[in-house]
Amino acid sequence: MDNVHKQVLEVKNLSANFYTSRGLIRAADNINFNVGQSECLAIIGESGAGKSVTALSLLRLVPHPGRIEEGEINLEGRDLLQLNPKEMRRVRGEDLALVFQDSLSTFNPVRTIGSHICETITAHRKLSSAEARDMARCKLAEMGLPAERSFRSFPFQLSGGMRQRAALAMAMSLHPRVLIADEATTSLDVTLQAQILHYLKKHLQECCMSLLFITHDLAAAAAVADRVAVMYAGRIVESGPVREVFRQPLHPYTSALLRSHPSFCPGRLEPINGSPPDLADLSPGCAFSPRCLKGREICRNKVPSLQELWPEQQAACHFHQARKNDLREAAVT
């Protein structure tokens, strides 16, 4: 791993709340992370953990009744939360691009793939339509698609994998600084997923792009990311380099998650019991404490803060010191 990444995106104390009839929901609570140039940060977590809200917050697209409460989103030194709506529109697509899981709803069904991409290009760049078309074809070809055919196709005429690649081509048509992929490979077959992960990794290097890879698929995150941030109930509970986090997780949630997955757990799975908490009705302490095997008195009363335990690896657990000692002993013996 390259440690001299220039930071492209820095998120500080970002909080987004939803004001619902059932009360305040802290969908993203005090989120801190940064993404370096050509780096991929994966945000992993289960549904309802606040991954998507975090992604939408970056683009300032949090849907009603949600609102970004506070924080800073620095994209190459500019705080996105201070921009006016017009400037923000320029940022979307040009500096920050988003790819969703469902590429069928990304595209308007009555327009061709090509016209979508051309529209994106001409909205941001002063180019003639012929130049825009050439650029769009070029982007499609870069994604390994038959350029001419897919340019003229309607969304439903492409297979799921091709459509997802076309969506990626569109998102990358303006060379964004950061690409946010929200479950972008989740519903695809393994070989197609592998294809897309391959293209993504290639582009990180070639285009100096950064990737924010949001997924609940641990294996995909492990394959593509340099660093991971694990979210639970709206908070980041652990973050660090992907190898370290997956090999020696510091937070009990992370290790429990790994023991739930057949790729990472050699013997019988030990899945986490129960289901994710109701965000409108969180306990005052650590949100994971009701499901945590190590839960103690302090866990139920006090929210643990994120602390750096190893270089670059952070966890929010009251018992991280003990965990660290365990790991150290294990390393010695």
């Binding site: 939803f18 059932r22 549904s47 309802g48 969703f100």
Partner: peptide
């Protein structure tokens, strides 16, 4: 539905709005 894949911004948040 609460399946993981379809968490477009967390459907649970929105179902709550409706179910007052």
């Amino acid at each position: 539905q609460q399946s993981a894949g379809s968490s477009k911004p967390s459907p649970r948040l929105f179902s709550r709005r409706g179910s007052q």
